[in-house]
Computed example of a mutant assay.
Amino acid sequence: MNTLFSSSTFWIAYTLTNLVAVLLVTACYRRPVLARFSLALLFGWAGWFNIITVLETPWVYADFADYVVFPVYRWFILGPFEKITVPFILTIAAGQLFIAISMPMTGRLFRAGCLAGFLFSLAILPLGLGSAFPAMLFLALGFYRLSEHPGDHLLWKRKTNRRNQKHLQAN
């Protein structure tokens, strides 16, 4: 087993990741605007981190093979993935950046980002501890909840209520 994953640093990061995931899924239900903003930051950071990591140390992704749930994932990571690590992870990072960009948006773009986040979260679940299981299950639930949210305004524009709009139109 990789030393990183058996160290206390890993378990602290694992616990914090799951705590943040619980807070995010709670925000998706109670404070969807805050959740959208937080997910945009999280996935923006994750996309940037994956780009930097894969360009500087692409071999670190092979360590995830030790923690997968299904043997086919292990076979893929230690086999075909080794030859395509950089383009594969860059594609994942592009997807993460798409999710980050879509969270503050509206309409189809917002909903597409929710779907992408939902599918991404489910797709990496079989990485087990490598994906901080069950954190990604919580995020999938959060993205599903957000997809049902109206998402009818851009995050940087304050939503005005009807009372304020009537007052503004009268003046």
Score class of each variant (00 low, 15 high):
residue 111 R to Y: 08
residue 70 F to I: 12
residue 139 L to Y: 14
residue 139 L to S: 11
residue 145 R to P: 03
residue 105 M to C: 11
residue 91 T to L: 15
residue 107 G to F: 08
residue 73 Y to V: 05
residue 144 Y to W: 14
residue 84 I to G: 00
residue 67 Y to C: 05
residue 81 F to Y: 12
residue 109 L to Q: 01
residue 109 L to I: 12
residue 122 L to G: 11
residue 118 F to R: 01
residue 87 P to S: 01
residue 84 I to M: 08
residue 147 S to M: 12
residue 97 L to W: 13
residue 138 F to A: 13
residue 101 I to K: 04
residue 98 F to K: 11
residue 125 L to H: 00
residue 136 M to D: 06
residue 128 G to D: 02
residue 146 L to N: 00
residue 124 I to G: 00
residue 111 R to K: 15
residue 110 F to V: 09
residue 135 A to E: 06
residue 101 I to H: 07
residue 131 S to G: 11
residue 113 G to K: 05
residue 107 G to H: 01
residue 136 M to C: 10
residue 118 F to H: 08
residue 93 A to H: 06
residue 90 L to G: 04
residue 132 A to F: 15
residue 101 I to G: 00
residue 109 L to P: 02
residue 89 I to M: 14
residue 101 I to E: 05
residue 106 T to L: 10
residue 133 F to Q: 08
residue 85 T to G: 01
residue 88 F to M: 13
residue 116 A to T: 09
residue 82 E to Y: 04
residue 83 K to P: 04
residue 75 W to V: 13
residue 88 F to G: 02
residue 86 V to S: 01
residue 142 G to I: 00
residue 100 A to F: 04
residue 79 G to V: 06
residue 113 G to A: 04
residue 76 F to W: 15
residue 106 T to R: 03
residue 99 I to M: 04
residue 116 A to Y: 02
residue 117 G to D: 10
residue 127 L to M: 13
residue 145 R to F: 06
residue 128 G to R: 07
residue 144 Y to T: 05
residue 136 M to N: 13
residue 146 L to A: 11
residue 98 F to I: 10
residue 148 E to S: 13
residue 89 I to W: 01
